[in-house]
């Protein structure tokens, strides 16, 4: 039996500097949920298949269950809690609500983070509904409402299609 190594992890989460001790073996998902108490990020499989735990690390979507907390040292993490604008749902969140793109809401935070990254990258509707959603498993919706949200965002004035590559209205806000 070895005593687990422990060190302080300092990172930026949703724009705020955070610092907390973590064992080397602690997953980033567990660190966010249980140490920083940001429980919006959900854990569905802990093996990188379901995508529920997706967060943005330095802007890139990653499975937080496949990373150690110490790997996020000095980096920037965005989670679902950071999406709403002063408590008001952002345009993507509103769209998902309008299209009934969620039921139990467990996979939703990961879906939101992947779609956020796709919008910032300026991916088109086909790439988003095809490749991006392929990285997520939703047991409730049959993906119908989520696809409808993607389609609605690409039709909406000021939606991602019109957004400049690398930063849309949401990212700028």
């Amino acid at each position: 039996m070895t005593t687990a190594a422990r060190r302080t992890v300092t990172l930026t989460v949703n724009g705020a500097a955070r610092s907390a001790p973590a064992e080397d073996r602690t997953l980033l998902s567990d660190f966010l949920r249980h140490t920083l108490r940001l429980t919006g990020t959900h854990v569905g499989c802990e093996e990188g298949v379901c995508g529920a735990c997706t967060v943005l690390l330095d802007g890139e979507p990653v499975r937080s269950c496949l990373l150690l907390a110490v790997q996020a040292q000095g980096r920037t993490v965005e989670t679902v809690e950071g999406l709403a604008d002063d408590g008001r749902l952002n345009a993507l969140q509103r769209t998902l609500k309008e299209t009934h793109g969620l039921q139990c809401g467990f996979c939703t935070p990961g879906v939101l983070m992947s779609l956020t990254a796709a919008e910032r990258e300026g991916l088109d509707e086909e790439e988003t509904a095809g490749q991006v959603l392929a990285g997520h498993r939703c047991r409730c919706t049959g993906y119908a409402g989520i696809r409808a949200a993607v389609a609605a965002r690409h039709r909406a004035p000021g939606g991602p299609r019109q957004a400049p590559r690398g930063g849309g209205a949401e990212a700028a806000g």
Partner: peptide
């Protein structure tokens, strides 16, 4: 749920 403010058991 969309804000990440669901309250699941865990």
């Amino acid at each position: 749920l969309l804000r990440g403010q669901g309250r699941f058991t865990d």
